[in-house]
Design a protein around this nucleic acid. Sequence first.
RNA 1: GCCCAGAUGGCGGAAUUGGUAGACGCAGCAGACUCAAAAUCUGCCGUUCGCAAGGAUGUGCAGGUUCGAUUCCUGUUCUGGGCACCA
Length: 1170
Amino acid sequence: MEYNFNEIEQKWQKHWNDAKAYSVSNTSTKPKYYVLDMFPYPSGAGLHVGHPLGYIASDIYSRYKRLKGFNVLHPMGYDAFGLPAEQYAIEHGVHPAVSTDQNIRNFRNQLDKIGFCYDWEREVRTSDPSYHKWTQWIFLQLFNSYFHPTLKKATPIAALVGSFELEGSVQIDGLRAQVSPFTADEWKIFGEKKQQEILMEFRLAFCGYGEVNWCEALGTVLANDEVVNGVSERGGFPVVKKTLRQWYLRITDYADRLLNDLDKLEWSEAMKEMQTNWIGKSTGAEIDFKVKTSTSPLPLSEGEGQGREAATLPLSEGANETSPLPLSEGEGQGRVALAQEKLAAPRYFTSTAEQWKYLEQFAKTNRKNQTEAEAIIWEEVRNRKIDGFKFRRQHPVAGFIPDFTCLEQKLIIEIDGDYHEEIDQKKYDEARSAWLRENDFSMLRFSNDEVLSDLKSVVEKIKLTLASLQGVNAGKSPSPLERGWGEVTLKVYTTRPDTIFGVDFMVIAPEHALVSSITTASQQAEVDSYITYVKSRSERERQAEKKITGAFTGACAINPFDGREIPIWISEYVLAGYGTGAIMAVPCGDERDFKFANYFNIPITNILGDAFNGTEPNPTKDAILHNSGFLNGMVLRDAIDVVVTKLEEMGIGKRKINFRMRDAAFSRQRYWGEPFPIVWKNGIAYPLPESELPLTLPKVDSYSPGPDGEGPLANIPEWVNQYTSKSPSLSERGWGEVEGGQLETNTMPGYAGSSWYFLRYMDPHNSEAFASKQATDYWNQVDLYIGGTEHAVGHLLYSRMWTKALHDLGHLSFDEPFRRLLNQGMITGSSRFVYRYQLINTSVTSEADIFVSFGLDEKVRSGKIPTEGIAFMINELIPNYCNLDTLKKRNATFLVSKIHVDVNLVDGVELDIEAFKKWRNGEYAHAEFILEDGKYICGVETEKMSKSKFNTVNPDDLVAKFGADTFRMYEMFLGPIEQSKPWDTKGIEGVHRFLKKLWRLFFDELKGKQWNEQEPTAAELKILHRTIKKIEDDTERFSFNTAVSAFMVCVNDLADVKCHKSAILEPVLILLAPYAPHIAEELWHALGNTTLVIDAPFPVFEAKHVVESAKDYPVSINGKVRTNITIGLDVEQAGVETIVLNNDVVKKWLEGKDPKKIVFVKNRMINIVL
RNA sequence: GCCCAGAUGGCGGAAUUGGUAGACGCAGCAGACUCAAAAUCUGCCGUUCGCAAGGAUGUGCAGGUUCGAUUCCUGUUCUGGGCACCA
């Protein structure tokens, strides 16, 4: 009987399927074990040999755990939403659902052939409505939650609303820069829109404006981890920064927990490192520096803190005399006069002289050109008409000109025209609001429409607001001078407050809000042109060429400790999005700052003494501080805390932790993804009620994007407007608020469905919940997760966040999804090349392509064979191909093209010429070959496996040729699972020979049945038990390659002793079952068993069978092994010494000398030291 | 630039805690069986000197610790991966 793997494998695959052999129950008395693969995106290309590596490893481990008595969950599914299917739809007009289904069928077909033990009844597809219903449901949980600042966990948003109603923003004060503090009473009069806007700042899934990675070619936004080197991960298209309305996940709130909980996980250090870097926690301080523009008339004097105080005093005559900065000639006189005049008028002066000068003209113009709505309001509020409060119109406040201002109550009224909806204007408005809020102003906003259509309620609202502010601002002076408003402060973030005396300049991002207000007249042109330059540069250019660029604003900041003036620069190396968008530059300690200072000739202060040599910066924390005022003599490391404490005392700085990680962009302008269960009405996002889920995708004809960066769904009004009216009436069902609203037209990104799929496997058919609590409690965390490293910062981080949020909200009892993570290495392809030679500069007589064998080509390239040499060889092949004389005269050369050739046409390195000629529909049918030793040898290079490089190997072919068992074992035998290694089909025959050899222990080709029931000998038992131990250990530590080799050793040994005893062979089959399940099953049944081998108990290792009574000790002299001596294991040091010293070989090497020492390690070795 | 991982025969790799470096497999060489091939079996297989016995040398490179180092330490080169103006 021969080993007929095809027949055996088909037979058992069918049997397992029919018997539901791998069906798993959610109730069991056995302990549970959950083994998970990263589910595949079903691409059209199908599987290549690299894909199943991880699946085989997890399959072996699952089967092993089942043999060891565990109830093992080992499911598989498909990450079925995604961009490629949609791209394919655009190009070929096939609906993504159709092509995805087709691809899945193809994948399944390929997977089935390898003989995996998946419980296919638990299959999930993220694009199934019954699945994405729960993706949408989880989204709603995130939408309806916020991160509680002290509990540090997701909490229903209702709790936040309750706290706002009860005590205003007290609890969350200072947590969200975008939201100004408010009282409970204020909250109540805000109105729904304003309330919802505030709540949106807290929701874990939220919608907002932000700079996003926009990919024009893909027509969508991408998350940070989907952008690589300024181009899209998929397709490599350019990506630009664009401000758009987008959905986000507030993953930054979880940054600390995501970082700290890494400790709980059994992941590789490299993986943890990657997540740690991505989260990018840094500990430092924010420091406020006072800024003075070079023309400022404010007397900013030396000495700490005095500047602030000085500004709060009413300015006396001669204030300008104390100004440390001489005003420029000419214009100076007039300005000083103006400044003095304004400064002397305290009550309503709300801008610096500099600002006033610029704004005055605008204000005057604005007053003359009021809009209709503004005119109406002005009539209502002027002359203290409302409860005696004085309003001013177009009154400059700091750098802004609000429409109407009541300084007494610090209330500002804005009437917005349509242009306020534009993005840039919005940003500007936000910056202004932020500043005003910080300075205790309240704001009321009305649209033109509101004023024109319902003046009454507008006035009523103004009255109410003024009343509610009564007392709020009591004791707070509206006077700018008493508050020191004339000052501008620059907030910087630094991790090195200890170096504050070494600050030689400040750098702020070109986009920084302060740039326009601090730039001096003389520097304006330079700053403007620099900003133009920065805007002209794409993200890619910015990353590619890191030139030192920048511009001086003309303004200076003041060092709070020594009063030094520090010039403020702008430069693109400072990022607006990180920290405060401003840094204090310490060139003696920081590489970039040092280069910048050198480039722009900014003098460098040395605070490091000898530790700074003037030619390169030293970032040390261990030097002694010099030139650092009260810090002199202190070690930098220790000074950090001292400085921050001092800053805090002075009220101009505080400790601050920053994260590099940003909130995750969560919307895509695409069709093939989960629709958001959100209805927009009057600019408010209403969640769809759970009863409406799943919200499914409409059928569409076109996948082209909608208007204004919206997705294709925006083109389908029937779908978008399906909630304008619905029967039975929406209000009857208790959610009338969405009536008349429009559905969100973005869809969710690919990582939405994959962030929780491991939970659905636990209870895949549940229609009441994403999974029952009973199921998630039972299966709990994934015990072993196997997949590639490419998901290190995407999927793995999002899954962790979703799990934590679901845990916080009481839906899960665990807060980390994957307890143990194993990263399989990439299988690289081994590409083969042929070398095509084309003569240029001379005529040839044949059109045939000429291919030169690798070895000859090398000699040509190294100059060992001249051009004429090759031409001569071609002429031998094709008579009169070219004229050698003309060739020489014209100095003709060959154009050599290195062409990828399909690895499947190459045996090792030798090209199958006939197959090559038929390749690609006979493209090279007429090719001619210059051979070496009668063969055409191909060039070899290791590259990533990909279709375009023709280096993919299809597992189907190998399974057909060698069987699934051989294929599985060979993939494992290639090397350590975590290491990346090149694929080489050639070695598979060795593994196949091993299985055939195993087969021959049971069956003889001629005689048939070989096994017997004889008692095993001690030697045979030793072989068996050594193998049990080795397989068990190796499987436990995922050392599958060495386990395969142990099987080979075992079978070789058994064959050597001609062992055909079932008492030995049967346990070996159980050991082998996880690795080669089909052959193990077949032989197991051949031995007479009727149950499945997978249900057999794992053999128990018994040490007594492997104990030795003696050891063949290596004996070294001075560390060099000279001989081996067999000595009983019970012999101790003294006995060993006697035996060794009497040995002839040892005596020879001792040359009569006495050994200094004899090192004896029992069961290891003996070393004689001379 | 920063961080991490790695470097062992012609090739993939093994050596689990410092204890005989090269298990197992591929490729190669020699032989057996065969008319022949396939399949199977046996032997050899790091480099080098030597007829041999045996010796020298050898885990990227240079040092160190140790009776003993592929393994630990310091420095260095190269390869792969991650991050990349994150203050």
